[in-house]
């Protein structure tokens, strides 16, 4: 495992992040029921499925951006409670999110901060890291996404692809155990998609544990070790990229894959 993927609890050998029988409903709308997922360290799982099938909501439950209606999220075996602070052996949302990073479709960079300030904000104000150390760390991750020379720019001066790479660096700067990516190329012009996917491929090679929601089938096949097909709020198919994307057995799955692949 490389430097990038090292976390403070490298000794822990079980699944880094687990969802156990998660269900979520918005008032009457049942988004999904009893979804479970184990993410092993270094594993990359791709979540695919039609729009509205609950992929984003599921991903957002994994870092408690949405509170699950029932079920449990566990980080390194510790169950997560819906309060900000830890309580005993249970970890709070604050600790969970320090360790489970998220990258959004619309980047959500902080527009009042420079690129480097965006990346250093988490280490400085959440981890209380000394400024100089955080900046060195920030420059390291900006280098990794190929944007070191933009560190003094404001987000408004960047292209969509550059913004998303900064957003990835911002998440990495927290040195999370897991990274959640929700359709991170969907808001980009087609010619900018490649540079972002390349960065994510690098992260996969470096052993970063990731759960990725994507519509890019070739990318999903290429980067992930396991693919989950979410349909109507349940896992309709699960397996290797080969089984799910290249040789789909399920009819709805094969329709979905062939529609999305081109």
């Amino acid at each position: 495992m490389t430097d990038l993927a090292r976390t403070n609890d490298a000794a822990f050998t079980g699944p880094v992040l687990q969802a156990v029988n998660l269900s979520k409903n918005f008032q009457k709308l049942q988004v999904f029921q009893n979804l479970s997922l184990d993410l092993q360290r270094g594993e990359v799982v791709a979540l695919i499925g039609p729009s509205g099938s609950g992929k984003s909501t599921f991903l957002r439950c994994l870092n408690m951006m949405e509170t699950p209606s029932s079920g449990q999220v566990l980080y390194q075996g510790a169950s997560v409670i819906p309060s900000f602070r830890d309580r005993g052996d249970q970890i709070g949302i604050g600790t969970l999110r320090r360790n489970v990073g998220m990258v959004f479709q619309h980047f959500n960079l902080f527009p009042h901060m420079t690129v480097l300030q965006n990346v250093c904000e988490g280490p400085i104000s959440v981890k209380r890291m000394p400024k100089a150390e955080a900046q060195a760390l920030g420059m390291h991750f900006l280098g990794l996404v190929g944007l070191a020379e933009k560190h003094d720019s404001y987000p408004s001066k960047l292209s969509g692809g550059q913004k998303q790479r900064v957003a990835i660096a911002r998440a990495l700067a927290m040195q999370p155990g897991v990274l959640l990516l929700d359709e991170v190329t969907s808001a980009l012009d087609p010619e900018l998609v490649g540079e972002v996917l390349d960065v994510i491929r690098t992260l996969a090679r470096e052993g970063i544990t990731m759960a990725i929601v994507t519509h890019e089938m070739a990318f999903a096949a290429d980067v992930s070790s396991r693919v989950l097909f979410l349909d109507k709020g349940r896992i309709a198919a699960e397996g290797s990229p080969d089984e799910i994307i290249f040789n789909p057995s399920d009819e709805r799955l094969s329709n979905f894959v062939s529609r999305t692949r081109n």
């Binding site: 870092n63 951006m65 900000f84 604050g94 600790t95 999110r97 320090r98 990073g101 998220m102 959004f104 619309h106 959500n108 960079l109 902080f110 904000e121 988490g122 104000s125 959440v126 981890k127 957003a167 911002r170 998440a171 927290m174």
Partner: peptide, 13 residues
């Protein structure tokens, strides 16, 4: 999205 991005890096409300 700003609130969400802040929350996602572990900031308290």
């Amino acid at each position: 999205g700003q609130q969400e991005a802040a929350a996602a890096i572990g900031m308290s409300p």
